[in-house]
Design a protein around this nucleic acid. Sequence first.
DNA 1: GCATCTAGTTATCAAATGATAACTAATGAG
DNA 2: CTCATTAGTTATCATTTGATAACTAGATGC
Lengths: 143, 143
Amino acid sequence: MVDKEAFFQQIVAFTTAVHEVTHTFTKDIKPDDITPLQYGILEYLAVSQPVTLSQISDCKHISMPNTSREIRKLCEKNLCEKFDAADDRRKQMIRLSEEGQAMMNVAFARIGGRFLERMKGASEEEWKDIQQAMQVLHTKVFY
Amino acid sequence: MVDKEAFFQQIVAFTTAVHEVTHTFTKDIKPDDITPLQYGILEYLAVSQPVTLSQISDCKHISMPNTSREIRKLCEKNLCEKFDAADDRRKQMIRLSEEGQAMMNVAFARIGGRFLERMKGASEEEWKDIQQAMQVLHTKVFY
DNA sequence: GCATCTAGTTATCAAATGATAACTAATGAG
DNA sequence: CTCATTAGTTATCATTTGATAACTAGATGC
């Protein structure tokens, strides 16, 4: 049998480490004129665009009024833009503007660079192991 | 060769999933009378106590004045306590109080329960795979 | 013994975030 | 058609968090 107590300790240590590393890799990336919450929204947009306000609200756990406010600010900074959904005239779709897309490309490239830097000594086999490991955890625990 | 672009996509998707799952597993755990920041400090204490204020400040990326303030609030709520370090009379060591320890035990048990629930169908072999996967990522990427 | 450094505190201010009420407009059910 | 529901907005307020300056007390270098 597995030792569930030890297993849980391991989960805590692991998730803490993931938070810590992503934090240090991300903290000095975002431009000074956007807040952490706004950066989180832009990251979500970069991965999932186009999305509705309601989707942002659900996925990022931000109330609708606050989501509306933050999106308005991002639009004012010309980082994203709204357009009407074809199927339902109540819906507002959001996507990154060209400027926003360019900004996120730069941010992602820098973060990616840091991960690559961290793993530059890895052998072909280690890369495979790491990818395999992420796949296992992604499908079985963190989905 | 590994496809580094795809690899990075995978990292982003994976870390996002870890954040998402830990968030949903943790959000309704903390008592209403402590803030998210305070909960984070308590979690850190539970894992690393006893620690100094400076250690909390460093590890949780909170300025010393703000760390001092939050610790004072936690002490006022009887969740942690200060005591003097033996070696240096400037240092204040912090540890959970009995009440704080009890609170974190409950919180951790509930979070642990949710992970176990999520993995209740897993075979002996899958458990091994998952532990193995965490170990790989913890040592090679998230350290 | 004096200057300098480290650990922590207190007070204060500004900004970011969370929460709620009251609203408009479009959709969908009956 | 009418009523309930959904998507989003605006305004407002409270709380949380971040940032800085000015301070005390103990340690450390020389």
